[in-house]
Design a protein around this nucleic acid. Structure first.
Lengths: 203, 203
DNA sequence: TGCAAAAATGAACAGCGTTCACTAAATTTT
DNA sequence: AAAATTTAGTGAACGCTGTTCATTTTTGCA
């Protein structure tokens, strides 16, 4: 028994070593530079070994994104102590942006990069992904209970609001804001969100 | 003279043949499948030849995106005949989404893909890009002259509104809407936009 | 017709993700 | 303890990518 336990532990450890190393390289140097060969070299294994632990690069990247969603969910969780739902919604947006700016590589992988087709919306992993979305929908519903967003569907609203914060972030992270030269882009980002916030506050 | 004219004409023609072929392949099969070799093969030239007409793949893709922006601008131009600025703004959003759904490969290249760093915001090309953005900013300013969006900066608003439509489209095109299973995504897209429209209508 | 300039070529380079026959190590069986 | 079996790790090789460049072919002119 104890011998089999050790084997499984070793497997888990190597699995995690690959994952952590890949995540770190990815965070530091981005997707392109993080090649399977480079990861293998970083942990002193041959490239083929990685494929005993991850089916392909997509699966590895998906596993990394699960890490990302864990951190993401922590960022969103700071709104829990805010009682007023409308204020909670606004802080949620700010925290969303903060995460993306603090962890741009993760955000890109999680929300912008070509999807790995894999079971992205299923299984025990992705918990934090679903949870995060639920946080948004729930706070919207609470806002509606207080009389906001009258006549709208909370699902439509959730995509609208998610799309709003994602949109300005996606433009920012993919350098599509070059025509905005008046302010620092990070400032503009927040100003655009605050404009949105102040508009929905009275809705 | 006439002989040199012909030579230049031939050069322009091959330039355009490469461009059109690449654009078509790109539109049909996407970025990944459109390799330099595949383009060369499609026009019965060797791979090296393309590099006499385009510095690298980035430059070729940029040239294709210029085509995309020309079409894009045409989509946006249908709002010209709408007098009421607020209504014009809303139709602008709908046309924006229509373009993205009609030409997803172009939209991806223009607004989502990793930027080619190149002079994306400069030079004689990109005219339609700047023009399109000006259309948005102008209509916002007109809305403000009619008393809308009081107390806001038109630049902030332009990023907010652009970000709104871009956001839901980017989530849609990159398949990040899997948790929305109630409606067809294209319908949800429009519903989210209409929710946004109805909210800003009273602002 | 001969010659210089321009254009087109395609092999070669360095990289990528991925596979798989093979070696080496660890574990179980005899 | 030795042999057999299972497992882990290897790294060369496959087919692909964008790109370069010495070489060949084509072109235009004297």
């Amino acid at each position: 028994m104890t011998i089999e336990d050790r084997r499984e532990r070793e497997k888990r450890e190597l699995h995690e070593l690959i994952l952590k190393t890949a995540a770190e390289m990815f965070r530091k140097h981005g997707y392109e530079k993080t090649s399977m060969r480079a990861i293998a070299q970083a942990i002193d294994y041959s490239p083929g070994t990685i494929y005993r632990y991850f089916k392909d690069k997509d699966e590895l990247m998906f596993a990394i994104s699960v890490n990302g969603f864990r951190i993401f969910y922590q960022y969103l969780s700071v709104v829990r102590h805010i009682d007023n739902p409308m204020e909670r919604l606004q802080v949620l947006g700010r925290q969303y942006i903060r995460f993306a700016i603090d962890h741009p590589a993760y955000y890109d992988l999680m929300f912008i990069m070509p999807d790995p087709i894999k079971g992205i919306g299923e299984g025990e992993h992705w918990e934090d992904g679903h949870r995060s979305h639920t946080v948004l929908v729930d706070v919207i519903k609470e806002c509606m209970q207080e009389g906001h967003f009258k006549g709208h569907d909370p699902i439509d609203l959730s995509l609208m609001i998610w799309g709003q914060v994602h949109g300005i972030l996606a433009l920012y992270l993919r350098h599509r804001m070059e025509m905005y030269t008046d302010k620092k882009h990070e400032v503009l980002l927040n100003d655009a969100l605050e404009a949105f916030n102040s508009i929905i506050r009275n809705s």
